[in-house]
């Protein structure tokens, strides 16, 4: 079994197999703990699956940041994220429950969780993306989500060099700009 540091390193890897293997290992060794917590706190098995996967997504995003350092065991970290997400869901549903927890937890900054919950725009983006080819979507995902450099994107996508990756990204952005156009969906920016 891989140790926590190796798992995190593999989650950041450009090697798809190494990344998938790390996800599989994390899933296999932690799911039952989270499921037990969710099911014993008003949730179903489906809730457990959903919450656990969202927790992995939050953890995955944190891992991609250069300044991320795991300050506790990976299991404790995942369990704490899962618990927070589940509590948020229950609050949104207007349910109050006395939480029963058998495991150690850590305090988390909740930015990642809130971001994950902001899905009002999801439908709009799904519609936009129907008009963008798969290859461009991959390049956008690698750049904005996986935070990969152009050189790494070229390596992952099998391009001759990073200039090709750069061009693909530019073309995709050009298309998105045309599609978004004068979208009525405006953001409020704050300092």
């Amino acid at each position: 079994m891989m140790n926590d540091k190796l798992l995190i390193d593999n989650l950041r890897s450009v090697d798809k197999k190494a990344r998938n293997s790390a996800l599989r290992s994390i899933y296999a060794s932690n799911y039952e703990y989270v499921k037990k917590f969710i099911v014993s706190n008003n949730g179903s098995e489906n809730d457990a699956k959903d919450i656990f996967q969202d927790a992995i997504i939050v953890m995955y995003e944190k891992c991609q940041r250069k300044d991320f350092k795991l300050s506790c065991a990976l299991r404790t970290y995942l369990y704490s994220i899962s618990k927070n997400i589940w509590l948020n869901r229950l609050r949104k549903k207007g349910k109050y429950v006395q939480i029963k927890s058998d495991y150690e937890e850590v305090d988390l900054d909740s930015n990642g969780l809130e971001k994950l919950e902001q899905n009002e725009l999801t439908k709009y983006y799904s519609q936009l993306l129907n008009k963008v080819d798969q290859e461009s979507q991959q390049v956008l995902r690698l750049y904005y989500y996986e935070k990969k450099k152009m050189k790494e994107i070229a390596q992952i996508m099998g391009y001759a060099n990073e200039q090709v990756a750069k061009n693909k990204k530019l073309r995709c952005i050009k298309k998105l700009r045309a599609l978004i156009g004068d979208s009525q969906l405006k953001f409020i920016f704050t300092s």
Binding site: L121, L140, R141, Y144, F189
Partner: peptide, 12 residues
């Protein structure tokens, strides 16, 4: 902001 959100949406 939209572009960044779309990248994140795709990733998730």
């Amino acid at each position: 902001q939209h572009t960044m959100n779309i990248g994140e949406h795709l990733g998730r």
